[in-house]
Design a protein around this nucleic acid. Structure first.
Length: 887
DNA sequence: AGGATCACG
DNA sequence: ACGTACGTGATCCTG
């Protein structure tokens, strides 16, 4: 027999390891039905790894059959006291078997026996027949099976990494032969399996004894040779335990199994089954791996689709498309402000027109379609489509539905920027993902083959047509039609116009800053090298940690996963202990400004108009806020003067104009006052009090605001923030540097003084548990599956987001409404003022001097009346010749 | 690709 | 006894 290789896997043990290795990411690993998939995923990773390195001819995964086994008969407490398998793991076990079926690997379990015994029995049989055997497990006890023919691979850290135990390796690690493991367990016992061994004897002592006497039996035969000692007394007293425990630890290598070696042929992956399984588990990376393998036959699930290639000859045909239509513009690159145009499609009801010729869109027939306000045009990603068409000189004001927005509002977790993937999640399968058709990474490209590209375009149009009514119905059920129709859809166009307007950057100013910073950085660098006595990469936390904590011997406090923490909070604690610290802090600060804001910004200024055009992501955040990328204009420095100067480079694009800024004052706390209905908090805002000061008066029991010192106000401010974030005493204590006990007192007092807030917090968490989601004022939803998690951390996190999301999200609703009304006003009044940026609670405009007086009244009035709360909204404004001066 | 760090609300 | 404040994005280093 030529090289038979048997792979035996301890299913429960590996699943358990996989589950806990990916426990942190538990909430990320769920499929479309809410099933947790982390253990399945980890198991799959391990399988791929072990199959790759062992290339078995035969394989079996053994599972434990149930709670009772012959061992529980021998010893009542066997595996007693073990906490129950988490439900998030149990629910995955049946699917694990489906995964293994997909891999063509047999599974087996046997009443009254553990997986270990099945493995022990089969490995013995295999050894006698001359097989090479690999055993995979998360349990080191199985190393007792290691032999010349059998290697035991024990998972370490994660699951795909394993440590291979040969007899030599066992010897090296433990100083024992594999068959002595059971003797060690006999003497030392096993806490996780809950059997005792000899009192006060742990692994170390057991090993020492066994090196001398060989076996448990040997130890007891030589008991008389030992000097009197506590150890000897314990050995005598616990002799019965030692022998029982050895028996319990011994794997039964003659279990009455009903499978034989001939049943275990490894058949290899069952392609269609596995693809189907991965789709059900939503395992995109494994799917892609499968597709990349040689001989993979793409599933022919997508129905044939007929389409017409549009040319200037037949363009008149599209005039016959009356009523509701789908339109799709393919801008293949991430940044649609600069992307190439790859093609487009338009049509309805199985009449699909597609083309690569973008110039056709400039034809008057298209202009008419896009201008016709009676026409319902449905798209995927309205903002992207609007910007793309705008670049072609086409005004697209009549987009009626956007599948991307619909899907985002239905479930912020379960959204995708890929129409194919999004469609699959909503149960529509007649479309491939862009990744499948265009490829990924450097290989991504629009197919040169017309049939492939056009079929995909047509499939997109058809997907839009099918999804719009379905998602609309779901929105209606959720009472989200208003949010969708009156907020998100019109906002998409407002954002598009802001992005297109862009903001002018004074590149000369930035270049001047760049050379100043370069000089200062090299000076500081030199000082740091001198103080360190060597040159090194200051930006490398690893090298910096080495210099500070090893070479210079400074006391290290915090550690990260990868080594010493060198974060600002840590370095500040070291100030004064060495001059190098201040220099490192300055270096960090300046190099951040230099690389991210000076150089980074210069890189993305458009040479045509000297402006930056950000992209707002309208369907990303879990709370309803926007985010801004490429460049991010929502995190331009302001807190420290050095960085704040960056704002001097943001200037009006016309002469005789100003940068004008209005921001909501304390909008989140006002929303909190409204949502909670807390009388004291509401009164404070109704009386226009300094909210942090009045909180300070209440939690410190002061007479009135005159007693509030800056430091007390600062602490009260931190408490207010803490409440909004979902407070914990530890978090607060870290933030303001007080003891945890003191922080707890602050919080307790706060809740006494603001009882409405306390009852809101209790109520919202209960609501999240009952209905599975929380809502904002405008019915924006966030699902929080983890509020019922058995994991304390995940549950606590979900509870904090349950409190925070309605507050942060409602504030986002409010500014979105204000932006829509603001844009409408600007257009109605034919003003030249342009809304340029939104920074969560702040709007930034470019205003011609002659409109300034009007805008100074208009913007705050629109913003503070965007929505009617039980407390007033307050808006503060400023302007100047650049963003820095608008303060 | 992921972690550490740091910029903003 | 857990290990901790909410929401983001860009840059750099490391494996």
């Amino acid at each position: 027999m030529a090289n038979k290789k048997l792979l035996l896997i301890d299913g429960n043990s590996v699943a358990f390891r996989a589950f806990f290795a990916l426990h942190n990411a538990l909430s990320k690993f769920t499929n479309q039905d809410g099933l947790h998939t982390n253990a399945i995923y980890g198991f799959n990773k391990m399988l791929d790894h072990i199959l790759e390195i062992t290339k078995p001819t035969d394989a079996l995964v053994a599972f434990d059959a149930g709670k009772t086994t012959f061992r529980t008969e021998m010893f009542d407490g066997y595996k007693g006291g073990r906490s129950k398998t988490p439900p998030e793991l149990s629910e995955q076990m049946p699917y694990l078997r489906q995964l293994l079926a997909g891999y063509g690997i047999k599974t087996y379990e046997l009443t009254n026996y553990e997986a270990d015994d099945i493995i022990g029995t089969l490995s013995k049989e295999a050894e006698q027949t001359g097989y090479e055997v690999t055993v995979v497990t998360g349990d080191r006890d199985l190393t007792q099976l290691a032999s010349e023919q059998t290697t035991v691979a024990v998972t370490v850290k994660g699951v795909s990494e394993v440590e291979h135990y040969t007899p030599a390796h066992v010897k090296e690690k433990l100083g024992l032969a594999p068959n002595q493991i059971i003797d060690m367990k006999g003497l030392a016992g096993d806490t996780s399996d809950n059997y005792p061994g000899v009192t006060k004897v742990g692994e170390k002592t057991a090993i020492k004894l066994l090196q001398q006497y060989g076996t448990v039996e040997g130890v007891y035969e030589h008991l008389d040779d030992m000097k009197a000692s506590k150890l000897k007394e314990h050995l005598i007293a616990d002799q019965a335990n030692a022998f029982l425990s050895k028996k319990l630890a011994t794997i039964n290598r003659a279990a009455p199994i009903k499978v034989g070696l001939s049943d275990l042929t490894y058949e290899g992956k069952q392609q269609t089954e596995l693809v189907d399984f991965y789709e059900r588990m939503n395992f995109q990376s494994f799917l892609n791996q499968m597709r990349a393998t040689e001989g993979f036959a793409e599933k022919q699930t997508i129905k044939d689709i007929t389409y017409t290639i549009l040319t200037d000859k037949n363009i008149a045909e599209i005039e016959k498309l009356t009523g509701e239509i789908s339109f799709y513009l393919e801008l293949p690159e991430k940044n649609y402000h600069t992307s190439d145009f790859a093609g487009f499609g338009i049509g309805h009801e199985e009449e699909w027109y597609v083309s690569r010729d973008i110039e056709l869109l400039r034809h008057s027939i298209f202009k008419k379609i896009f201008r016709d306000s009676q026409r319902q045009i449905n798209v995927f990603d309205l903002k992207r489509t609007y910007v793309g068409l705008n670049r072609l000189g086409i005004s697209f004001e009549n987009g009626r539905n956007d599948v991307l927005l619909q899907s985002y509002l239905l479930d912020t977790n379960d959204n995708s920027n890929d129409l194919g993937a999004l469609a699959h999640r909503h149960g529509y399968q007649e479309i491939s993902t862009d990744e499948e058709v265009y490829g990924t990474g450097v290989k991504r490209q629009i197919p040169a083959n017309d049939a492939v590209f056009f079929k995909h375009l047509a499939a997109k149009l058809r997907a839009i047509e099918n999804l719009v009514p379905q998602l609309q119905a779901e929105l209606k059920q959720n009472q989200q039609i208003e949010l969708y129709t009156n907020i998100e859809l019109p906002l998409a166009l407002v954002l598009a116009k802001m992005e297109i307007a862009g903001i002018r950057v004074d590149t000369k100013r930035l270049e001047q800053m760049e050379s100043e910073f370069t000089e200062r950085l090299s000076e500081i660098e030199q000082m740091i090298y001198n103080e360190a006595g060597e040159t090194f990469n200051i930006k490398s936390t690893k090298q910096l940690g080495h210099v500070l904590f090893e070479k210079l011997g400074l006391p290290s406090s915090k550690k990260t996963k990868t080594g010493y923490s060198t974060a600002v909070s840590v370095l500040e604690g070291l100030r004064g202990q060495a001059p190098i610290i201040d220099n490192i802090l300055s270096y960090r600060q300046i190099s951040k400004i230099q690389s991210t804001y000076v150089k980074g910004l210069l890189k993305v200024v458009h040479s045509t108009d000297q402006k930056v055009h950000t992209t707002y992501l309208q369907t990303l955040t879990q709370t309803g806020r926007l985010s801004s990328i490429d460049p991010n204009l929502q995190n331009i420095p302001i807190r420290l003067e050095e960085g704040r100067k960056i704002r001097q480079a943001f200037v009006p694009s016309h002469a005789h104009a100003q940068i004008f800024s209005s921001d909501y004052s304390q909008i989140e706390l006002r929303v909190l006052a409204h949502i909670t209905g807390d009388k004291n908090l509401q009164d404070a805002f109704k009386n226009d009090e300094d909210i942090h000061a009045s909180t300070a008066v209440r939690i410190f029991g002061l007479k009135d605001a005159s007693e509030v010192t800056p430091n007390i106000r600062r602490q009260a401010k931190a408490v207010n923030f803490g409440i909004v974030y979902g407070i914990s005493d530890y978090g607060l204590s870290q933030n303001i540097g007080i003891s945890r006990k003191q922080a707890k007192t602050f919080i307790d007092t706060y809740f006494q003084e603001f009882p409405g807030v306390k009852s809101y917090i209790d109520r919202i968490v209960a609501t999240a548990r009952e209905q599975g989601y929380v809502e904002t004022i405008a019915h924006r939803r966030r699902y929080l599956p983890d509020v019922n998690s058995s994991n304390h951390n995940q549950r606590a996190f979900a509870e904090r987001t349950a409190m925070n999301t309605p507050i942060q999200g409602s504030a986002a609703d409010i500014i979105k409404i204000a932006m829509i009304q603001m844009q409408k006003k600007l257009e109605e009044l034919h003003l030249q003022t342009k809304m340029l940026l939104q920074v969560h609670d702040e709007l930034i405009f470019e205003v011609p001097d002659d409109e300034l007086a009007q805008i100074q009244k208009l913007v705050p009035s629109v913003m503070d009346s965007a929505i009617k709360l039980d407390v007033p909204l307050k808006v503060e404004s400023a302007f100047g010749k650049n963003w820095y001066d608008a303060k």
